[in-house]
């Protein structure tokens, strides 16, 4: 009977610690919180090594503290500014060319008369989302290969051109990157817009038709405003993932010949940290990156709030 009383008290939301009510809940929380502590919070405090000259066998406690020396070092490093520039530029290209594509696709898909065809197209558009970047990059590398790729075979046999080393020429690398990103992601990204489109009240269109509004004016005054909120949400999220975006894609497609235009913060951090074992320096870059990232998310969120009256939190 004690049990029953406890639950009645719980329904009344009694505050303070209550062993019989709280202990089972803590047991449910324990494994997850422990894992987060070990694999999230310890590395979070581990960024302390950004202020050290960290030597693995001496450990975090035994290594020498050097203040802001690592930060000074990379701020003077030309490579750092190069990857910073690349990260921003590639993201900008992504937003200008990659971001609108799913919106256009969703709008056009929504206009198809045959719902069967619509469904087929949509299902096929999801396919690249399900295959890994390793496979996608493998496909892109194969068809773009200078010696055996079908595109170069076509250029040579039909147009009589010399083979082009697409993935090794700076001018081609970024467009390929953006196209690969669109190819892999547009179908799933369109899902958000299609859901928003289907939630627009059909009566609005009826009313507009009676008022004599044509297709274009309906699109402009009803459809696009209906997509406004979700577009802003996704834009904020995109900017929020700016510094980490595209790691797999770039890592699997780039090579030293295109570092000049393709190397970004995440790939640079990997090479510097894991391959060259410069732990402290890389952690300093990582820390800076997190701070920049947070400022970006925070300010775009505020901007979204000011412009559209909507925000993430």
């Amino acid at each position: 009977m004690a049990r029953k009383n406890d639950i009645l008290i719980e329904l009344n939301e009694k505050r303070g610690f209550k062993k019989s009510r709280d202990l089972p809940i803590y047991m449910l929380l324990l494994p997850g919180m422990l894992l987060l502590f070990v694999f999230h919070y310890i590395p979070l405090f581990g960024v302390a090594i950004a202020f050290q000259n960290f030597i693995p066998f001496k450990g975090v406690l035994g290594s020498q503290w050097v203040g802001l020396k690592n930060f000074e070092y990379f701020l003077k490093d030309q490579n750092f500014w190069r990857v910073m520039k690349n990260t921003l530029e590639i993201n900008l290209l992504e937003i200008v060319f990659g971001f609108p594509f799913p919106i256009i696709f969703a709008l056009l898909l929504n206009e198809l008369w045959s719902s069967k065809f619509k469904k087929t197209v949509q299902t096929i558009s999801y396919l690249p989302h399900f295959i890994s970047w390793v496979i996608a990059a493998g496909i892109f590398r194969s068809i773009l290969s200078p010696s055996s790729g079908i595109i170069n075979v076509f250029l040579k046999n039909v147009l009589g051109m010399q083979p082009i080393h697409f993935l090794s020429i700076a001018g081609y690398f970024r467009p390929i990157l953006i196209i690969a990103g669109i190819w892999k992601g547009f179908g799933m990204n369109a899902v958000y817009y299609l859901a928003a489109l289907s939630s627009i009240d059909a009566q609005l269109y009826e009313a507009a038709k009676i008022d004599g509004a044509g297709k274009w004016r309906q699109t402009w005054h009803i459809t696009l405003p209906g997509l406004k909120n979700i577009t802003i949400v996704l834009l904020v999220l995109q900017v929020g993932s700016l510094v980490t975006i595209g790691f797999e894609r770039i890592f699997l497609l780039y090579n030293p010949l295109v570092y000049e235009v393709g190397d970004v913060i995440s790939t640079y951090t990997y090479r510097l940290g894991i391959e060259q074992v410069r732990f402290s320096l890389t952690s300093a870059i990582g820390l800076t990156q997190s701070v920049v990232n947070f400022i970006l998310v925070y300010s775009t969120n505020r901007l979204a709030k000011a412009v559209a009256g909507w925000s993430l939190w």
Binding site: M33, L36, P43, G46, V47, T269, G273, I274
Partner: peptide, 19 residues
């Protein structure tokens, strides 16, 4: 808070790797 913080802040690649 303990859970949500992990969505916005992470130690990054290198501290995790060292751990």
């Amino acid at each position: 808070y303990y859970l949500v913080i992990t969505m916005y802040f992470s130690g990054g690649l290198i501290p995790t790797y060292i751990l």
